[in-house]
Nucleic acid binder design. Structure first.
Lengths: 338, 338
DNA sequence: TTGTAGGCGTTATCAA
DNA sequence: TTGATAACGCCTACAA
């Protein structure tokens, strides 16, 4: 494959018979350029297959036309959907988007942020249920930063999340189904703020509804503790499990099947996020679909305002999600005979 | 939030009492620097919170440390998984990764590629079942380009795909289940090469197995034609539907349910891709899991070699996928009584 | 409206 | 080993 040489603006200018400053002005539509010059430049650019070097352009103009997005794990439907929506919103506002998916630990996150910053991100979006507070503050110390679905509200840092009411609604639905003893999964990762606050909200709502609760540890990898905890929860009489994420819910159900238990006849299970296949009626998972579109739209809006130096007074925006009533939540098995 | 001013290398140099050239050498480990100077610079950099401006660095060194990834739709599990794996592989090789998810049409794709190129991508990975040949050639005319799962083999352009055998295997499984008349979905989008070749492979295998075939149109959006086609296929006596993607398979099953038909008792359905939730035993979809890890690893390897100017002799690499035997493929209903 | 000149933050060359 | 000095490709006063 023969590659065409990267043509520079000066070559376009020469071909058009103007100076490179005129070419620059013609190409980015700024300043006054005669119609003749503009057309000549545009034609030359097209003919030569010119592609502007955005690094040099940003550098020279010390402008910030790029937004950086840090997501937790691109392979997870929730984050994938989020990235796709953010992409759409930034594109619509003529920002370039650089996406990196950072790890679960602070080191990886800092390095990912450095990549973003190094490539000239003028604003950063952090969408990771496991973003470290230090990472968020690090980013924020350089450029405007908005968190999405992180569940961690820090003073001075914009945050967009799902409304607490949506988490409560799910817990109430479980209570209303008649369950009297419910297990809630809790991540042991100290960075999982989103999960922690979710767990806390579930627990609060359940307790208020006079439901007994049990905690089951969940971990991103290594199911051992989850399975063990699940087993003892069931032995303790739990009739429903509220998982913090759809992924965990599905793992729980699979484990139940393995034990010969049916869902929801024997045990009810709920998830959270409701992205992609997880909200398919075919799977029938009872979950809450996060308002990804609303959240990302607001986040990009907010970021744009901040990047433009505007002031906004928002301690934290919250949007309601949508309860998806699947088939995995039902009444508890009738134990009257016992 | 007060932002710290972006400190430049020259400031680090001053703080360390050396020239910026020395600071540069110390910071990127190139050239000879005295131990004393190196430590002073490193300390100054840390103290000042220095973050190197990669735009300027790349510009000055005219080096290509960045790989661009164009994926079709970040929200789709298959592409999400792909992006995540590519990220891991590039990171491991010390490349930065810029990801953009391009649209379904040529215009969007070209613009996305320009963004990548503009930010200094020295090599491009195209992972989109709908990448236009023009887009691929466009990218390839500038920098080394490797396609992943595009299903379009062009001379001179490296391609990594799933092995045809894996597609055949699925079709054979359908035939072996006893189906004598099978519908295959076919995208009407002229850019959907991957789907086209998949459809073709399905059809070929089915015909070789002496199975009658029918085509059902499928489209990314607007289910009308899919539903109508499905209806007439069923009326024509089809007992199994082979969809080109899991997403389509799920839609087909949902539609069957709506018509009061059971899967697989009345109609069998198979998918393709097997990413994330789609290969969960809970869903039970019969599909083929693409060898995403193998494909992305090979693609990044290949790209790295090309970027380094190396020569490789590969008309197209292919890796076998894994047949996932779910519950949506069964024997055809016994029509003996009719 | 146009061109000249200087600068954006790095790296690279070449004397010292 | 170090430090001037010149690129890298572009934008942008400023002057013409």
């Amino acid at each position: 494959m023969e590659r065409r040489p990267r043509v520079r603006m000066i070559e376009v200018a020469r071909a058009a018979g103007v100076s490179h400053s005129t070419a620059s002005r013609a190409l980015n539509g700024s300043g006054k350029v005669s119609e003749a010059a503009r057309q000549a430049v545009e034609r030359a650019a097209r003919d030569l297959g010119y592609v502007r070097d955005l690094r040099a352009a940003d550098l020279a103009s010390s402008r910030a036309a790029t937004v950086g997005l840090l997501i937790r794990a691109a392979e997870r439907p929730f984050y994938g959907e989020l990235a796709a929506r953010v992409q759409a919103h930034t594109e619509q506002r003529d920002y370039d988007l650089l996406t990196v998916s950072g790890g679960d630990d602070l080191d990886h996150q800092i390095r990912a942020l450095e990549t973003l910053l190094g490539h000239g991100a003028g604003g950063i979006l952090i969408a990771s249920g496991r973003a470290a507070a230090e990472a968020i503050e690090y980013a924020s110390s350089f450029v405007p930063t908005v968190t999405v679905g992180v569940g961690l509200v820090r003073p001075g840092i914009d945050a967009v999340d799902i409304a607490v009411e949506s988490e409560q609604e799910l817990a109430e639905a479980v209570a209303e189904a008649g369950h009297k003893h419910v297990a809630v999964t809790a991540s042991s990762n100290r960075l999982a703020y989103a999960l922690h606050s979710r767990t806390a909200n579930f627990l609060t709502s359940l307790v208020l509804a006079d439901v007994r609760t049990t905690i089951v540890p969940s971990r991103a990898d290594g199911d051992e503790r989850l399975i063990k905890g699940l087993r003892s929860a069931l032995d303790a009489g739990v009739t429903a499990v509220m998982a913090g994420e759809d992924l965990t819910a599905v793992r729980v159900i699979e484990q139940l099947v393995e034990w010969g238990l049916r869902c929801p006849e024997d045990v009810s299970v709920t998830g959270f996020d409701g992205a992609g296949a997880y909200r398919s009626p075919l799977l029938g998972l009872t979950t809450v679909a996060q308002p990804v579109e609303d959240m990302t739209g607001a986040a990009v809006d907010l970021l744009q305002t901040r990047m433009a130096g505007g002031r906004v007074d928002t301690a934290g925006l919250r949007f309601p999600g949508q309860l998806v009533r699947g088939r995995t939540l039902g009444p508890p098995p009738d134990l009257g005979g016992a």
